[in-house]
Each structure stands twice: as structure tokens, then as C-alpha cells.
Amino acid sequence: MKESIKKVAHLARLKPTPSAGEKLVQKAKSIIDFVEQLKNLDTSKIEATSHAIDITNAFREDTVQKFEGTKKILENAPNHYENLFEVPKVIDEN
């Protein structure tokens, strides 16, 4: 269980310090143990509910809408170059 939790932390792009990680594992384990009680219920003939209200796909016309807030969006960017978000280099030159 401990290893599984460490693995999902990596999948979720979280890298807690060893002591914070220990606490997280311990708490996550107690919650997973707690939710296990659902296994006591027979749900073999029950449909799953993903939404409480019956809804169908909401389609709309695929029309172009003008957007002029580019500057405001870039103002929130931690780093940007002209109209692009800047991140560390992804492709290795070698």
C-alpha cells in the first residue's frame, strides 16, 4: 500500500519531503481503509450514477468567438516570451 501511494503521488506530480510523505501515506491509508466498507454492499445489479441529475450532452454551434483578453492572461503567466508561456527546455539538444 505504501509503495502504491508513493507511486500515485509521482503520477499526480507531487514530491513531498520524507516526513510530509510519511504523514500523507499514513492518512491516505486510514482513508482507504475507511472507504473499504463499501465492499459490504452488493451492487452487482446496480447502475452507476455519474451525475445526480439526468442530463444529456449539451451541444452548441461550433462558432468562432472573438477573444481579446490575451494580455490579461499573459499577465498571470509566471514567465512568458511575447505571446508564449516560457518553460524549461523540453528537448535535449544532444
Partner: peptide, 10 residues
């Protein structure tokens, strides 16, 4: 499993 129990609760 949880989504199925959700059906029962509803």
C-alpha cells in the same frame, strides 16, 4: 463501486 452506491443513496 462508489458510483453504484451513489445510486442507492439517491
Amino acid at each position: 463501486k462508489a458510483q453504484k452506491v451513489r445510486t442507492l443513496i439517491k
